[in-house]
Design a protein around this nucleic acid. Structure first.
Lengths: 228, 228
DNA sequence: AGAATGCTTCGATTAGTGTCGAACTATGCG
DNA sequence: CGCATAGTTCGACACTAATCGAAGCATTCT
């Protein structure tokens, strides 16, 4: 017996291919039913159900019952963070079994991570925020900088409405594809909503990848990235 | 089959209790022999050997053969980062099986994470560096700030000697006990060396916990923490 | 060279767990 | 009230993988 938290218990939950696929499918922050997750994992419904109850016992999933549907989702951003961290190792040490195809390219540029934007675009955005004192960072904690309040007001994001919650306004989240951090937290989620509401980008069906439309990309860069 | 890196393969490697114990024992960044790791994991030598070759295949461990000893260590800081991230989840969702005893208290305050200092002291140190513009941070990348060069010169840490290597000078590493980041990278390692060289603190035998001596703590706070 | 130590490989046993079909429960619809 | 759909539980099977003892290699000490 060793000290410290029971890391093997958590890791073994993620260590089964079927469960890993389910978790990956939930990485976009959405909620899926047991049947949908069974398809994602490529197993039968009973098998999926068994896995789901294990993941629930382990505390990795949250459950929302709505009528005869039971929606499963990741139980928090911390879970998504851990999964991205494991993905980082897997991408680094693993054999390049998935050589960068067109979809992977899109995924590297922009994708959804739990409920916020990840990938090169997201990393560039956070870097820009920090460079322009819109955000400042200490450790994992990211907070509004001197230029922040005004910036988000003109960008059309209501900071005040976001700050009330228990959830931290900003957080950083390590990116498996670029090995840099991007913006998570309530603000990260709000920005993703902003992008989707304006249809600047659309989700690729059945994937976490996000493809910007040409005008959408220009709009996004104009509002959220620093001028070059 | 899904896109993305093979996360299940990595997680299942960590998911076995014996292997998890071995990895935890290596979290202090040291290198241990197969026999030592067998003891840590509580298994026989053949069993340990089998696990070690699996971890090698998975790319999680590095091996240094010296004579008839074979020293195993984590293959990089990224592995340590991932483990801390899993520990974070395990600590958050897991039952409090290890209720905070005296040793855990010490561990929370200061411990060794791979090759640098972690725990409350380390988090306070990084926060202080950022507040005083000794370091600045953008995403996961931490770099020297305007006040950095002078600070480390007076503190007695030779930045120039550290910058030559391929290893990044600074990095942040998420702390499972405090859920904040602390300083990793070559600079983080150099500071831990600094502390140990001057015997400001000592490692608790058989643990990653670090206990400062009373005068050592004062010296550390005087040099590396901001004045209150 | 011979003995001793560190470590790995082999072989056999065993425990755990992932898998699915079938039966069972629950919710919603007509 | 029956029928269809969503989901869980049960039982049986198969397979992986963890485990250890014994034997085999490699390196160092005497």
């Amino acid at each position: 017996m060793r000290d410290g938290p029971d890391i093997a218990r958590i890791a073994s939950l993620v260590g089964d291919p079927a469960r890993a696929n389910m978790l990956m499918a939930l990485m976009d922050g959405g909620a899926l039913t047991a049947s949908e997750l069974a398809v994602e994992a490529g197993v039968s419904l009973p098998t999926a159900s068994s896995h789901l109850s294990k993941l629930m016992d382990g505390g990795l999933l949250a459950l929302a019952s709505q009528g005869r549907h039971r929606y499963y989702s990741l139980s928090g951003t911390q879970i998504a963070s851990m999964l991205e961290s494991i993905m980082g190792v897997a991408a680094a040490v693993g054999p390049r079994r998935t050589r960068p195809g067109p979809k992977d390219e899109t995924m590297r540029v922009a994708r959804v991570c739990y409920d916020h934007l990840a990938g090169e675009q997201a990393v560039a955005m956070l870097d820009g925020f920090l460079a322009r004192d819109i955000l400042v960072v200490a450790g994992e904690i990211v907070t509004l900088g001197p230029a922040g309040k005004e910036f988000f007001a003109t960008a059309g994001i209501d900071i005040a409405a976001l700050s009330g919650r228990r959830r931290p306004l900003c957080r950083s989240c390590l990116d498996w594809s670029v090995r840099r951090s991007h913006l998570a937290g309530a603000l990260g989620a709000a920005i993703l909503d902003h992008i989707m509401d304006r249809k600047w980008a659309r989700r690729l069906p059945g994937s976490r990848a996000v493809r910007f439309t040409p005008p959408g990309r220009l709009a996004f860069e104009g509002v959220f990235l620093p001028p070059r």
